[in-house]
Computed example of a mutant assay.
Amino acid sequence: MSKKNKDIEVKVEETTRSIKGTEYTVNQLLIGKKMIGEVLTMGPKEHEAFLGEEDLGAYKSVDLAVEAVLMQHNLHD
Rank of each mutant, 00 (worst) to 15 (best):
D63V: 14
T22F: 08
A58N: 09
K60M: 07
I31Q: 03
Q28V: 10
I31G: 02
D7T: 10
K3P: 02
K45D: 15
N5W: 14
Q28C: 08
I19W: 04
S61I: 06
L56N: 03
D77A: 11
K45E: 15
V26S: 07
S18D: 14
H73L: 11
T16R: 01
I8P: 01
Q72G: 10
T16F: 04
T16V: 10
S18I: 13
K3Y: 13
T41C: 10
V66F: 04
M35H: 08
K4D: 07
V26L: 12
T15E: 14
S61V: 05
G52R: 05
M1Q: 11
D77Q: 15
A58Y: 06
V12P: 01
Q72P: 04
K6P: 03
A58I: 14
A68R: 00
V12S: 04
E9W: 07
L70D: 00
V62C: 13
E23I: 15
E54F: 09
T16C: 09
A65Q: 01
E54V: 11
V26H: 02
K45S: 15
L40G: 06
A58C: 13
G37Q: 03
M71Q: 12
N27Q: 11
K33F: 15
I8R: 10
E14K: 14
S2C: 10
A68F: 00
L56R: 03
A68L: 01
V10T: 00
T22C: 11
L51D: 05
G37W: 01
G52K: 03
D55T: 08
